[in-house]
Design a protein around this nucleic acid. Structure first.
Lengths: 249, 249
DNA sequence: GGTCCTAAGTGGTCTATACCAGTTATAACA
DNA sequence: TGTTATAACTGGTATAGACCACTTAGGACC
């Protein structure tokens, strides 16, 4: 297995993919020690800095952990993507071993309300795409998601069937956008009667309310989404790092 | 202003502190462009890699953002520490511009229940320190925090007054522990009658429930804490990165 | 067999340098 | 004056090498 020097992907990224695949396919198991940086550099004919960059990224992602004088080890798998990476609902649910499904509640072009316009940095009443879905895991309602996207950035969006397609996939693969970053808040609240009905809950019921603003390159907002998750069936996981990166808190 | 070569702190960490201070004291404002990497390397008499490491860390922390061909810019301040860094309650509240306070509900040594023992990786019924506090912001109850810590790791802990002292400060500064990492889950739930009473809420009421396991070096768990936050007064903020670090998602 | 010391190995930090793709300013030309 | 090409600048990637502190294995000595 070699790294492709002519590939547009940086060598360190290729090495990450390689090592990640080896871990995922069971060649290394949790707490197994990986070859040393110098061994990997030798084996893949790259410099040690290139190996370090790959391993540092993987350590930051939680895939491996490093110990001075001992080596680099495979970390326990962690399911914390909802709080660290721009991922969609389907990916989250699959990662938890469930089968995702969706039902479109509403999909149309509307004039942007002032709060939506402000978030998306457009003029009020400019057209936005409204996409509202009920999200299910193993056929059980889990979340309601209401997304607003600037019509000018994705005029063909509603030609897709979002009962079966992933919004993020379409934005990235069909429309060629690169999702760059997102801002997100999470809070708790009581479910409205409408939400209780849709999510098949018993009142009174608590829900996690999430608001996310997703950006493409150059900090252009492309999606403003409100999500309501059942409090009894959904929780967020995260790994916290030291307060000062590179040094323990 | 120079970097101290004899300091035990790495040069890149010192440079981060320096630049962060300059940003915080208003020398640079949001969206101001920082000097180029080559200029900073010249000015501080370090190699460019050292500058890059400082800036990369700061970009990852959200303090700055970089644009190929244009430079490095000061980012909008973000309050997302609760989800990315091991920080305590007081720090969070202060960061939001409020005055934190605490009231100790319970502080004693007890035998560890099985779930607590399992989390802290100790034998059931071994002694743990129980520290339960009502947390307030601007004199308004905001959260209930119940922490369990292995007695063997901090036998003198309860000699401190946690109505005024920060647990994390004591662990780090008095007992010399380095908080390394934490695992955390967040979910929504309905408040119990006891919680409603303590937090002065009106039933029915939704709360954010957080469970955190904090580690010191070598993945040794030192704190297992259950927190209940008022849903109407507390929300978590986070910045999400691309799914694949170093490349947009 | 136990203890201590040294050498070899580990990750972490740093210098010096080079090349690439993207951006911007400047110079040349119509 | 407007357009185009080029040079200088930007961050991103990579090589080669060196030194540091920590860890571990092996050898010498008791």
């Amino acid at each position: 297995m070699r790294l492709k020097r002519e590939s547009p992907d940086p060598l360190y990224a290729q090495l990450k993919d390689l090592l990640r695949t080896e871990i995922e396919t069971g060649h290394y198991r949790v707490n197994d020690r990986l070859p040393s940086e110098r061994e990997l550099a030798d084996h893949y004919q790259v410099s040690r800095i290139t190996v370090r960059q790959a391993l540092l990224d993987m350590a930051r992602e939680g895939t491996v952990y490093t110990r001075v004088g001992k080596g680099t080890f495979v970390a326990e798998p962690k399911i914390d993507q909802p709080l660290r990476a721009v991922t969609g609902f389907s990916q989250d649910v699959q990662m938890r071993g469930s089968r995702p499904a969706s039902r479109v509640l509403e999909a149309r072009v509307i004039p942007a309300a002032p709060d939506v316009a402000a978030a998306l940095r457009i003029v009020p009443n400019v057209e936005v795409v409204l996409l509202s879905r009920l999200r299910l895991a193993d056929d059980i309602p889990l979340a309601i998601e209401t997304a607003y996207l600037p019509f000018s950035l994705c005029p063909t969006l509603l030609s897709h069937n979002f009962a079966v397609e992933s919004l993020y996939n379409v934005l990235q693969n069909d429309l060629g956008y690169t999702l760059w970053q997102a801002e997100q808040t999470i809070e708790a609240g009581l479910a409205t009667a409408h939400e209780i009905d849709l999510l098949a809950m018993t009142p009174p019921a608590a829900v996690l309310k999430m608001v996310r603003l997703t950006f493409i390159k150059d900090s252009v907002p492309i999606e403003y989404v409100f999500s309501i998750y059942r409090g009894d069936r959904y929780k967020f996981h995260s790994t916290l790092q030291p307060s000062v990166t590179g040094q323990p808190a």
